[in-house]
Write a protein that binds this DNA or RNA. Sequence first.
DNA 1: TTGTACGCGTTATCAA
DNA 2: TTGATAACGCGTACAA
Lengths: 330, 330
Amino acid sequence: MSVSIKDIAKRAGVAPSTVSRALANHPRISPETRQLIQNLAKELGYVPSAVARSLVSNRSTTIGVAVNDFLNPFYVDLISNIEEAVQGEDYHVFVSSFHRNRERELSLTGAFFERRLAGAIVVGSLVDNGYLSWPNRADMPVVLISCPAYPFSVSVDNYRGVSAAMTYLIEAGHRRIAFVTQGHHTNTEQQRLAGYRASLAERNIPPDETLIVHGDGGITGGIKAVPQLLALPHRPTAIFCYNDMTAIGVINGLQHQGYKVPQDFSVVGFDDLGIAAAYSPSLTTVRQPTDQLGQFAVNLLYHLAAGQTHIAPQIIEPELIVRQSTAAIC
Amino acid sequence: MSVSIKDIAKRAGVAPSTVSRALANHPRISPETRQLIQNLAKELGYVPSAVARSLVSNRSTTIGVAVNDFLNPFYVDLISNIEEAVQGEDYHVFVSSFHRNRERELSLTGAFFERRLAGAIVVGSLVDNGYLSWPNRADMPVVLISCPAYPFSVSVDNYRGVSAAMTYLIEAGHRRIAFVTQGHHTNTEQQRLAGYRASLAERNIPPDETLIVHGDGGITGGIKAVPQLLALPHRPTAIFCYNDMTAIGVINGLQHQGYKVPQDFSVVGFDDLGIAAAYSPSLTTVRQPTDQLGQFAVNLLYHLAAGQTHIAPQIIEPELIVRQSTAAIC
DNA sequence: TTGTACGCGTTATCAA
DNA sequence: TTGATAACGCGTACAA
């Protein structure tokens, strides 16, 4: 049992409430007793109990972040940006992963609520609108990132992001464009695939389902996609990847086989992670502004915690960044 | 204010304590009232308050993990393994990062203690033995990973890991072996550098400080190290990298310049992340068993929480995994 | 089998 | 300026 306000009170010969005020720098307290008590607190190594404080005030200074998966650097980037957005507001951010599992996501956000956290931010939710039918969802605000159907959410316009990249590739002369997926049937993946298919249709390019191969959202999936693409009777000239890590895997696989990017194949990523600019060749990619996503999500949470209800989903426009992993067809 | 045990009691016309017992599946309760109350609880969407429970029982079911940095996949791997080790013990793991900042590490573990968590696991601590002089450290066990000087810690023997890799390279005929660092002067980096230098000395290979170049612990740092190494008057034939991500960057930089690995340069990593086996070429690396590290750290925490004090730092032996990124000198 | 009473550490209100 | 008291939600010892 650690040092409490009562222990200090006894040592100082005052009432517990006096100690509380002295430590809170309350105005109505004499300078001497304040000094005495603050010294005593330091001496005894007193650390206030956020548990007790939470119970009486019915408020928490902890924001819970539930993340689909720690292995996706995009999510990890987002976490850092959420932490930065919260910095200085004397809130703390606690993160946990639900490992791409809907049950575990519910168990995790349930754990957040049991602990009466100030709110939850879920990145890559599988529950999605399911949160709307939570028994007492009014009690803890839940904000989603990358789930545009949910009313309290912040997302990137995946459809338009993919369209921008596809338009660019098609105008550069590419007609056979492969798509390496993430392999999980998320909301986000569906939107990106929809953008891919629509872009081809708009330009009257006949779709070819063999050009859609499955990755795993990581470098490994990209590497493994390469032999599949090379084995096709009609090879693609450009490869659109679900995200940057997949693109890095694809480029590595191609380079290892002796092919050159972008001379032999154009490769496009999604996210614009820090590595995208540094990689050789640097990646053409669709930028998702994780700083804005994080900042907006935190703001949304604050607004909800303050009782606002008329809030519309926020959609952020992604931006195509053209670098050296793509080239025009000669 | 969410639904409490009292709300249920009023609705059911019983005392709060009866509700408490009914929900805890206490033996001394009539089946009818139990059913009545459990139904009512579900209907009202009752979720017990871990805050109140924590306060009265003076126990917590939350383990805090403070991690140096989310960008290092090795740490992230570790987090997953800690989570797995805790699974089923009805504890929850909350993670937060201190961004390579000693002050923020102290603030974070302080926040853990304020919230009276069951214990803390710090990965890549910068405070290290500083925890021994915490005012009331007896109240919350703190376990460190990768800080072998601290009594309650689990680490890999970095020195021997590097030695194994160096011995292998030297026996394969390499004499000019570069070292790409992480760039932060951590305990771990010092040990690995010491192993590097000692291995050269043992074989009477004259050290050359120009072969030690700085990375950043990530892919980017590896890529940037390549031009520095290629610019040397006496180029290395092998490149030892602080970790796998650095090695991936180095290989990418070399491949992009038209060099082949391992024909032109041998490259060794450290960690044995999942990517190491999948990358092209697959990485020769020093394996750190994150599953064991996580499991042991959690066990250590349990032992400390149970009051044990006679505990020695645990050192795990790393293992050299030879794959295709290294070759003998002809 | 159920109800009453109390305590956990803190803050807020009211009285002194 | 300080002290006493109640309250937050839950668990438990004891009484009924």
